[in-house]
């Protein structure tokens, strides 16, 4: 295994991801775990586990932290927002300008990337949970399904219930009433995924989205959401190899860049 020369740490609201890269920018080490309430301790522990990089004294190679908990790492490390990190990671993976959609647990982001990999514009969802991964988590849990299974149900349905309300609270009560009216769970699931896809598509259009579309973050694993987003925005979505690691990967690339500078 090549040596880790730079590290990216993405402390998200749901999962914490760490990536170590070699001098040519290839991922040589990675780890992902659910985010713990004591984020600072968790980050320190994970940073100490990186092979050949300092042990408990912390990494000796450059680190860039990103994500919700980025300010919790030692101040000697650089912090960069997940916007820049996701853009950097995805640009390096796909090597294309375009529009990156990142649907996370708390936030959805749309990032427009130029031909040099720079961020031209970005937009994020408003305060409420509608339009984020949280929305699907809540309704899937209500249906006693995992998010993945719930998405599979959506794709299996030729029918789709029209759900206009993406307020998490309203949608939950609307869903219960649709079930009571005898609608199939498959078509309700499809309707809910459609509602979320519309919301994100609207965010993308407001940010001035340009083709091709790319996706990163946990939401990229949701097959139904991906399919419906392609349908709403009328363009195919390209995925990097490891969508969920793109924030951490981008952070590592930025750390490497700084080390080289």
């Amino acid at each position: 295994m090549s040596t880790v020369v730079a590290i990216g740490a993405d402390a998200g609201s749901t999962t914490t991801k760490l990536v170590g890269i070699s001098h040519d920018g290839v991922i040589v080490w990675e780890t992902i775990e659910p985010t713990e309430p004591r984020m600072r301790e968790q980050l320190e522990r994970l940073l100490a586990t990186i092979p050949g990089s300092g042990g408990s004294a912390g990494p000796t190679v450059p680190v860039v932290a990103t994500g919700y908990g980025r300010n919790l790492v030692d101040t000697k490390h650089r912090r960069v927002t997940e916007i820049t990190c996701h853009a950097t990671g995805v640009y390096r993976s796909i090597r294309s300008s375009g529009t990156l959609i990142d649907i996370g647990g708390q936030d959805s982001k749309v990032i427009v990337i130029d031909a040099a990999g720079g961020v031209v514009n970005f937009a994020m969802n408003d305060k409420c949970a509608a339009g984020t991964g949280r929305f699907l988590e809540v309704v899937a849990a209500r249906m006693r399904e995992s998010v993945q299974d719930f998405a599979a149900l959506a794709l299996s349905s030729p029918e789709e219930v029209a759900i206009s309300n993406t307020c998490t609270v309203f949608a939950e009560s609307e869903m219960v009433s649709l079930l009571a009216q005898g609608h199939a769970i498959e078509s309700i699931s499809r309707g809910l995924h459609r509602a979320l896809a519309r919301r994100v598509a609207s965010l993308a259009r407001s940010a001035g989205a340009v083709a091709p579309l790319m996706m990163s973050g946990g939401g990229a694993h949701n097959v139904a959401l991906r399919a419906l987003l392609e349908n709403e925005l009328g363009a195919a979505i390209r995925l990097p190899a490891k969508p969920q690691l793109m924030g951490a990967y981008g952070a590592a690339l930025l750390a490497l860049r700084r080390a080289a500078a």
Partner: peptide, 9 residues
């Protein structure tokens, strides 16, 4: 705006 309306509620 029908999105701000909950039939059920």
């Amino acid at each position: 705006d029908p999105r701000a309306f909950s039939n059920e509620q």
